[in-house]
């Protein structure tokens, strides 16, 4: 499995850990700075920022920034909104994208290659460049809800969810993974008379744990960090997500301690989600067996 395994002893082992740890420090130090700073008063935070004290919980340490941050903005609401929107989108995205990928990977049909090319080309379009046309579009879309027919999707959860369900990268990931699954399995099920839906549901998806985990975390990151889109389609505080909420902390005289506290708070759910998936994720992306 691993290329190097025969010489794990003594000095070499120590050297290896030292190298690994030094690199780990490079990756982790800005985040330590963030967390440590969130416990310091503004003036001290700024003065400490230029020395090693930036990483040390020294001086006047308290949770004042956290209580102030909670007073400044409805953080609980923002986190709830983000988690809700992110969670629902991730689930729907996994379903819709894997269905499409299933079709592209296993079925022969007219128009397949054209459609797949279009889907991959959508990867090139940065969202910023289509935001306004999309805004004009969703503001005119009809919706049938409990209260009957209405026009316009602004100020809702659905406007933050539905446009983001399908995306080229997720479909592409699933397609690549499915291509590595043994085709005999599919054809055998077909011969036995299984419907396509049954094959998707009973044969393919149970084998797709790794790619599901991969796609889930990538989608989670994209959705949780949404800023521009909710900014322009949500005017009511009730539906605002965390990254828009960050703006609450930039006033004329910015309270940096509170900013750090807020950043720490909103980073926690992602880290938690990531660490929970970590084992599955590293294992999964590792076995996704990506074939360009």
């Amino acid at each position: 499995m691993a290329a190097i395994s025969s010489d794990n002893h003594g000095l070499r082992l120590v050297t290896r850990y030292v190298v690994l740890t030094l690199i780990a420090l490079i990756f982790v130090f800005p985040l330590v700075f963030m967390v440590v700073s969130s416990f310091k008063p503004d003036l001290q935070l700024l003065r400490d920022a230029s020395s090693i004290r930036a990483f040390l919980p020294v001086g006047d340490i308290s949770t004042d920034n956290y209580s102030a941050a909670f007073e400044r903005a409805p953080i609980g609401l923002f986190v709830f909104n983000s988690v809700l929107v992110t969670g629902v989108t991730v689930l729907l995205s996994l379903l819709i994208c894997s269905l499409a990928a299933f079709s592209f990977a296993f079925l022969e049909w007219k128009g397949r290659n054209t459609l797949l090319s279009i889907i991959i080309a959508t990867l090139i379009i940065p969202f910023e460049t289509i935001a306004i046309p999309l805004l004009l579009l969703v503001s005119k879309l009809p919706w049938i809800g409990l209260e009957g027919l209405s026009v316009g999707w602004l100020n809702s959860y659905r406007v933050q969810i539905i446009p983001w369900i399908a995306d080229g990268l997720t479909i592409f990931l699933f397609v690549q993974f499915f291509k590595d699954l043994p085709r005999d399995l599919i054809e055998a099920s077909r011969v036995e008379g299984a419907s396509w839906w049954q094959i998707y549901r009973r044969v393919v998806m149970p084998l797709s744990g790794p790619v599901i985990a991969t796609a889930a975390i990538l989608k989670f990151l994209v959705m949780y960090n949404q800023y521009l889109w909710p900014l322009i389609v949500v005017q009511e505080e009730t539906y605002r997500p965390v990254m828009v909420g960050l703006q609450y902390f930039f006033q004329l005289n910015t309270a940096w301690g509170e900013v750090m506290a807020y950043l720490t708070i909103i980073t926690v759910p992602v880290l938690a989600f990531y660490l929970a998936l970590q084992r599955a994720f590293i294992a999964s992306i590792a076995s996704t067996g990506v074939k360009g």
Binding site: I96, A100, A101, S103, E108, W109, I118, I162, P163, A166
Partner: peptide, 15 residues
């Protein structure tokens, strides 16, 4: 083929 691909492709096309 179309039935499976359509929901995803339709959303991408629209949005």
């Amino acid at each position: 083929g179309w039935a499976f691909a359509l929901p995803g492709f339709g959303l991408l096309a629209m949005f």
